[in-house]
């Protein structure tokens, strides 16, 4: 298990920043294609810490673009790449503000449930409460059913995603709720 503190520490600029991704990318007035290319190059050629930094600045970089489509598309590719890894620091960084704002519902829900699997607290997921929908609740309910059938505990973060009647009470009410 990893804490969000560790991942945010890495995101805020740990070792390997090579002068700071954010500073480099924040050059005012760079054309979108240059910014998009630099984001992608930084991510693809970077180590885990550098990748976390890139994921961490995506939201702000896109906000600064006059025509954000290209940079946003690259950002989504990079987030989807990070969500395919098995490194909880990368997956946690991928589910930050950029994903909260721009990642499609399907991928976003899978990102949330993947963090539950990895034991990463959901407190760091941007716009979690705003975006949590019936489909995410259904996925959470199915996962809780599997955990119960296996005799395994249901983490608080998973319980909080369950449909309202089941989320209100104890294990007993969870069973009754289904």
């Amino acid at each position: 298990m990893i804490s969000m503190h560790e991942s945010t520490t890495a995101r805020a600029g740990g070792p390997g920043g090579r002068g700071g991704v954010a500073a480099s990318l924040a050059r005012a007035g760079a054309p979108a294609i240059v910014v998009a290319d630099e984001l992608e190059t930084r991510y693809r050629s970077g180590d885990t810490e550098e990748r976390i930094q890139v994921l961490g600045v995506l939201d702000r970089i896109v906000e600064e673009q006059a025509a954000p489509d290209l940079v946003r598309a690259v950002g989504i590719d990079l987030v989807r790449d990070a969500l395919r890894t098995n490194d909880p620091r990368l997956v946690a960084a991928a589910m930050g503000p950029f994903a909260g704002r721009h990642l499609g519902d399907h991928d976003w829900r899978h990102g949330v449930v993947k963090l539950v699997f990895m034991g990463v607290p959901l407190a760091g997921v941007a716009r979690l409460h705003e975006r949590a929908d019936d489909e995410l609740a259904r996925m959470a309910e199915d996962l809780a059913e599997e955990r119960e059938a296996a005799g395994r505990p249901i983490p608080d973060d998973l319980r909080a995603l369950l449909p309202a009647p089941a989320a209100a009470g104890s294990d007993a009410s969870l069973e009754k709720g289904r």
Partner: peptide, 17 residues
């Protein structure tokens, strides 16, 4: 086409679906 069996992984997330 190759006359072979297939090993199909079922997903970790949303497994029943």
């Amino acid at each position: 086409r190759h006359g072979l069996p297939v090993v199909v992984h079922t997903p970790h997330r949303d497994k029943k679906h």
